[in-house]
């Protein structure tokens, strides 16, 4: 009996958020499929799946930043700016391979700018990434002249082959996302950098005294977060083929909402990618379900905001809460 209790406590400690999310997900699926005949159609599920990959990749990057105790709210703007620049490159005749490389490199570079703002100028991460996002959004409007940009009609087939294509029935987008999760998982669990992410997030002073270079770790985390924004840009172009300069502006906190929903502690030092991906799926299903049911946009905004508050509140109950 004692043992069973202990095991349950242990299970809750390690997997609590994941279990509750899985249950919530099942309930949501039942709710939406019973209230709308369109929910469980293959085209809708494919729709959810594709959107999920973009959010999912960025959420994995945001998880890395949050493990060190930093909220990076600039990812969607990195996506917008890198996406706009990529379309410009494509229209200037650059090969898709070069554009892909550009997305990764530009994402890393913009993450490095965030890293500089936070670690060298010592601006608090939330303020730092909000302001850098404002600057980047400005550049996005400048590049696009405030219009929707589209890939060159001659070359966009190459992008759609990736964004809308699949291998043995598995969409390439999903494969890319899974690959990103694998790389980040291995980084977190099996490298010194990953260990230091947890250490610095858990107790930065102790980490410093143990010889960890705090600046390097925080810088690296924001770069990874930025790279995932760049990957998000490439996925968006490949799936949609065009980009509005205000993309993600309304969804700015979606990534954060998903990650917090996934039970990643806002105070740093812990976080599991399984929680992140479940948080992403639940959030995307809720949003898709609301859209399919024809719920008005303002209600959707209210629900989205409420989800963040609830997620953070649960976080606080579980012993998290703001620190940094």
């Amino acid at each position: 009996m004692e043992n069973i209790k202990k095991n349950i406590a242990e299970l809750n400690k390690n997997w609590g958020p994941q279990i509750s999310l899985a249950v919530a997900l099942i309930l949501l699926l039942i709710l939406f499929s019973s209230t709308s005949p369109f929910f469980f159609t293959s085209s809708n599920l494919a729709n959810i799946g594709l959107y999920m990959t973009i959010l999912g990749v960025m959420a994995a990057g945001a998880t890395v930043a949050l493990i060190v105790g930093m909220l990076d709210v600039s990812q969607y703007t990195i996506l917008a700016l890198v996406g706009a620049a990529s379309i410009t490159l494509d229209r200037a005749g650059f090969h898709i391979g070069i554009v892909l490389f550009f997305c990764l490199a530009a994402g890393a570079a913009l993450g490095a700018v965030n890293g500089f703002i936070v670690t060298v100028l010592k601006v608090h991460p939330i303020i730092g990434t909000i302001s850098s996002a404002m600057v980047m959004r400005g550049f996005t409007y400048m590049i696009t002249a405030s219009r929707t940009l589209s890939l060159n009609p001659e070359t966009r087939g190459n992008y759609f082959a990736i964004g809308r294509g699949s291998l043995f029935g598995i969409p390439y987008s999903l494969i890319i996302m899974i690959f990103a999760y694998l790389v980040i998982h291995i980084t977190l669990k099996h490298t010194q950098f990953g260990r230091y992410l947890f250490a610095v997030g858990g107790n930065s002073n102790a980490s410093f005294l143990a010889g960890v270079n705090l600046r390097k770790i925080r810088f690296g985390a924001l770069m990874i977060s930025g790279v995932t924004g760049g990957i998000g840009a490439f996925l968006l172009l490949s799936q949609v083929g065009s980009l509005q300069p205000n993309v993600g502006e309304a969804a700015l906190l979606n990534v954060i909402a998903a990650v917090l929903l996934g039970g990643i502690s806002i105070s740093g030092g812990s976080g599991k990618l399984t929680g992140t991906i479940l948080g992403v799926i639940v959030l995307v299903v809720i949003q898709n379900g609301m859209t399919i049911l024809g719920i008005q946009t303002f209600w959707q905004m209210i629900v989205r905001g409420a989800i963040i508050i609830i997620a953070v509140f649960i976080n606080v109950i579980r012993g998290g809460g703001f620190k940094y």
């Binding site: 291995i186 099996h190 490298t191 010194q192 260990r195 947890f198 250490a199 997030g201 858990g202 107790n203 002073n205 102790a206 980490s207 005294l209 143990a210 010889g211 960890v212 030092g269 812990s270």
Partner: peptide
Amino acid sequence: ALVDSLNVANNLFLGREEKVSVLGGTLKFL
């Protein structure tokens, strides 16, 4: 100077982790 959220072994080796090199040192794993 211990990190509460890390385990005992991780704390003992914090700052001096043992790694194994693969691919001629391009990657190092704990």
